[in-house]
Write a protein that binds this DNA or RNA. Structure first.
Lengths: 201, 201
DNA sequence: TACCATACAGAACATACGTTCTATTTTATT
DNA sequence: AATAAAATAGAACGTATGTTCTGTATGGTA
């Protein structure tokens, strides 16, 4: 019965969520009203072979559903928009972190968060106090909302990025404001906005 | 040393997050470079007595940091802004849910989420496609961003709420738009915006 | 039917792991 | 310094738990 394996997966996930730690083989057998441990072991090793679960040899309660592994992950919270890209992960680190679920944002390398101060980014529909999660990268695709360092005004701002025949157009989100045009070598992309979180209460 | 207990708590949390299951006493001893298991046991029982951790007698890997128990919680995702408040939790339920961490929003009863469709709320700095987490409540405090049902236009909109000598002022976030005034009995508050999440990528 | 792969039962075994105990050291208090 | 309280070491012990093995049932296929 293929049903069995799904029952097993369900039980493991349920137990883990309920108790905070994974079940033992015996607990699975008992919880599923199965009649032998080896049966559980049988399906367990099948699931492990399919890569659906992880287990550690001989260790108690070491089954783990793969998909829930990184359900929560931690993103460092920087003090402010860095003048230069945070090459060193500890650079500008405020000491604080935020936890995210993959429902909100998929985990990927180079993520960092910062709390927006002031209303300099209202034109990007971003409030004072908003939490912005960015991904550190030097390139951008058309339409991305990116943090760029502008050499002439010596500041970093958030703009929408468009590459157009030889130059770069930086478009404010606010339609009443005029776009800026630069040569690609003039600007330096520091990262891309992945997520904006506004906490009202 | 009080330091010890915090080290222990940190280690347990870290290990749990890293491995998906709690550590054994020996793993704690080893990971913390302590020299005896009974020392770990000693502090473990102290933490348990303080209610900081939970353990199950004799069970392997059954330590659990209390505070992380509900680190993730589930909020139902409604299909759209409900015409009437969702008294029944399953009302308008899209079948989907989102998971949040308390870093983002503290868990509390009456939370539901909805995906904004259209640009009818740009004036509240809310985009098409944004995810809005609301709390179902009939009252509001001054300054709250609330969903209200307006009888004359027969629609629900998001406005900032202000109670002023006998009437209610509903203020659009966009300063160029004029506020609306109503008698308190005319409007019906459906909920309060707790969180706005904009997923850019 | 004969055959084979897979699903299941149940016991036996080895070890991972929590618990307890006694003794020794450190820290705080007077 | 004297004393008590807490912290620490280290070993011993018993149970919890994963693993393995042998054997039986079941279901599909030639």
């Amino acid at each position: 019965m293929k049903q069995r394996r799904e029952q097993l997966m369900d039980f493991i996930g349920h137990f883990q969520r309920e108790n905070g730690y994974p079940p033992t083989v015996e607990e699975m057998r008992c919880g599923l009203r199965w009649s032998s441990k080896s049966l559980v072991e049988h399906h367990l090793s099948a699931l492990a072979a399919s890569g659906i679960i992880d287990r550690q040899d001989g260790k108690a309660r070491s089954v783990r559903l793969r998909k829930t592994r990184d359900a929560i992950y931690v993103v460092p919270l920087l003090a402010s928009i860095p003048a230069s890209p945070p090459r060193d992960p500890g650079d500008g680190f405020s000491g604080d972190t935020i936890q995210l679920t993959r429902d909100i944002l998929r985990q990927q390398p180079g993520l960092y968060a910062l709390r927006v101060k002031g209303d300099s980014m209202v034109d990007a529909m971003i409030h004072d106090g908003d939490l912005v999660v960015m991904k550190h990268q030097q390139h951008a695709d058309n339409g991305d909302l990116v943090a760029v360092w502008l050499p002439d005004s010596s500041e970093t701002t958030l703009k929408r990025f468009y590459r157009e025949n030889g130059h770069v157009r930086l478009q404010p989100a606010n339609p009443t404001m005029k776009p800026l045009y630069f040569h690609p070598s003039q600007i330096q992309i520091q990262g891309k906005v992945m997520l904006v979180i506004r906490q009202l209460a």
